[in-house]
Structures are given as C-alpha cells and as structure tokens.
Design a protein around this nucleic acid. Structure first.
Lengths: 203, 203
DNA sequence: GCTCGTAAGCGTGCGATGTACGCTTACGAG
DNA sequence: CTCGTAAGCGTACATCGCACGCTTACGAGC
C-alpha cells in the first residue's frame, strides 16, 4: 500500500563504488553518492542509517565476487593460498576501498562465508580447537598485512621508490633493499610469504 | 631577532596524543589540539602544514619509544620476534592510534630506523638480495596484520564475541572457532603466527 | 633605552561534510 | 475515487580543515 521503494541497498553500494573508483575514496560522500543516483542527499537515509553502513555495503559488494568454493584436488596449503589470493584479487580490483575493507571487515556477510569455507579447509586438514584458531588468525594476519603493504604503502610503490632515493648515508640497508624491492612483483612477495607461513603451520 | 617560538613540533604531538588517548581518535581535531595547548586553532599551522603532518608526528611519537637495538646473544628468529614485539607493545599502549600507524607508517623516522635495524639482523643471518626483500616484507605483513586484527577488530574482541553468538545454523565452524578464540590471548596468537612464518623463512 | 624588522600567534570566515527534522508527494489497496 | 503509508526532498545546523590578513611580542642595533 505504501509507496514502493525505487532503489535497493545494493544499488546504493554500486553507486558508492562507482564514485570511489572514479574519484577516489576521498570523494566518497553522501552528497556524491546521491548525485550519482540522481537523488537528493537525504533520500539515501531511507536505505541506510549511516555513512558507516554505506561503507559496509561497499565492502560487501567488492567481497561478494570472490568464489567461496575451495579448489578441489589440492593439498590444503594450496587450497588456502588460492582462497586468500581470490580475496587479494577482488580487493585489488578496487584499490581505493582497501582502507574500508580494513574497517568493515567483520560486518561483511561475504567475508563471513569465505571465512567459514576457509575453516572447512582447515578442519578437513586436521586442524581443531586452539590450533585451528591460531591457524586462522595467522592466515588472516598475513592476508590483511599483505593488502595493507601492497595498497596502502605511500601511493602503492612510490614509497619504496622514495625510500630508495631518500636514504643515502643513513639507512644503507633500507636504501638497497628498497632498490631491490622494485624488481620484486607484489604477487611473488605474497606467494613467498604465504608459503613460508603455511609451511610452519601443521595440524 | 624575530619573536621566538613557544612550542615545538613534539609538543604538538604530545598534545595530540593526549587528546587521542583521552577522547578517542574521533575527537582528534585541530581545534581540540589547540585547546589542549591553550592556543588558538590557527596557531598550530605555524608548526605544521597539515592535519596529515600532525598525525604523522603522533605516529612517530608513539614509535619513538621502541628500542632499536637487537637483543644480543639470540638466534636471528628470536631477535626478529623480539623486535616486532616491541612495536606491537608500543602501539598497543595507544590502541586508538593504530589506524594512524597504518596510514603514516612510511613517514616515521623511528620506523625507518627500526626497519634498518631489522634489516641488519636479517643481513647478519645471511639474507641478501631478493630473499632479504621477501623476508622483510613477510615479517612486515605479519606485523601489520596482527596489529590490525588485534586492535581493529570490532572494538577489540567484542567482534569475536558477537560472531560467537550471532552464528547459529549458518557458520557453524565460525561460531565454534570464535568461541574458542576467546580463550586464546592475543600475545599467543601473535607468537604462534610469527614462529610459523619465521620457521618457513631461510637465508 | 628606544626603534623597528621579523615572524609568532590570533580572529574571522569559507566551503564541505554528516545528518536531524518535518514537509510533500506518489503509490496502490479498499 | 479515496486516503493511509512510507518514499523522497529541502532546509538547517554543528563541526571540520584551513586561507587570509591583522596584531603583537621579541630582541638585535643604535
């Protein structure tokens, strides 16, 4: 009987993500999203109680495209690596939302589902009780840390460049390492770290 | 000959950190810091060009208290663990600044010095070239990720509690894991993950 | 001790943001 | 055709970072 809604929360999320991808995270505002949708600013609050909640929707939208199913026929370490890499890829497709994924990690249903699937892999591998908790947190730490380092460095790579240049007499090792680091692709960094971590985890 | 300055940048940093520790990161504003110092808002800009720069000062202040010297007489893995733990401890003393440490990580001189010292340990252990880059990034990833998980979960632990409660039929493993997780202290989580990671890293 | 150039410190004001509040308006069941 | 309901909108406000230009305290030189 009442007037029907003309939008959905996911339409809001899409609009917000569009703004972010086009103009950067700093340009995300209720007014900008409303403009993107051709609505008045305050209309958004019929769908969302908060800017906070809108950000959560964006994070869940980005994460919703990661495949949850563990790749079959692989060892558990490879399964975990693939699953984490899917998150990395999905988030990497929208680098500007990385800070949001950090803040709203725990409210995303998609990420809850992904975590549940990851726990299934670990359980299958023989992890249980405290050891499973420790394994999960270790994997999550590395995942979160990798994303942070890769995308929230000073403008993603310009920082290692500046470090390589700015450290002449002091920081000799840092300067050399930064110079070498420019030849190491992020994917290799991630894979190497993940392999090291997983080799040290056993059920 | 000109009028002498009455403050220093580190006095600004102390005032800002005081505000943050007392009223939370959300209460950090140029006006609040000025009030804390008994100055007018715009006076701060004689010492700092930006709010951004002020945040950087806070981060460096927090990080400036970490001991840079590698603990002598230990294996390199233990040295690395201790050094990372010092950062964890320093940052943990001011949980509200954690988000700032993520954003301003690369501008902190204290952290640069710490990183240089960490690289000395790795070099001493035999790491060089690309392998040293990979080892450093892996350690940093885990460090950053641990901080993020420990302090930027939903209000530091209330999130695992809510997850343990909110997941009845769906997410059975997540619910059980969250319940178990409440019995695992953060320090143990960190130590375990770090040990796993380091055991997989070799020069 | 007086003068005066320099930069410290301050006050006002602007544009942008999130959102509270109440009005108007479109829908569709009866 | 009517009319209750909730959608959508407009106005307004507190707060933020900061631009700009004025005022004021210092201390070197005479």
């Amino acid at each position: 009987m009442p007037r029907p809604r003309s939008l959905s929360t996911s339409a809001l999320a899409v609009a917000a993500l569009t703004v972010i991808d086009r103009d950067g995270l700093g340009a995300l505002s209720m007014r900008a999203v409303a403009a993107e949708l051709g609505m008045a600013t305050m209309s958004l609050y019929r769908y969302v109680t908060d800017r906070e909640q809108l950000e959560g929707l964006v994070v869940d939208l980005v994460l919703s495209e990661v495949d949850i199913e563990p790749p079959p026929g692989l060892q558990w370490r490879e399964q975990v690596t693939v699953m984490v890499d899917r998150v990395r890829t999905a988030v990497g497709g929208h680098p500007e939302v990385v800070p949001l994924t950090m803040t709203h990690r725990h409210t995303s249903v998609s990420l809850l589902r992904w975590t549940e699937a990851l726990l299934r892999v670990l359980t299958q591998a023989g992890f249980a009780g405290e050891r499973r908790v420790l394994a999960l947190r270790a994997v999550l730490s590395h995942t979160v840390g990798s994303l942070q380092l890769q995308y929230l460095g000073p403008l993603a790579g310009a920082g290692t460049a500046s470090m390589a240049a700015l450290s002449p007499g002091d920081y000799p090792l840092l300067a050399e390492t930064a110079r070498t680091a420019r030849r190491v692709p992020p994917d290799e960094e991630f894979q190497h770290g993940m392999a090291a971590l997983l080799s040290g985890l056993t059920p």
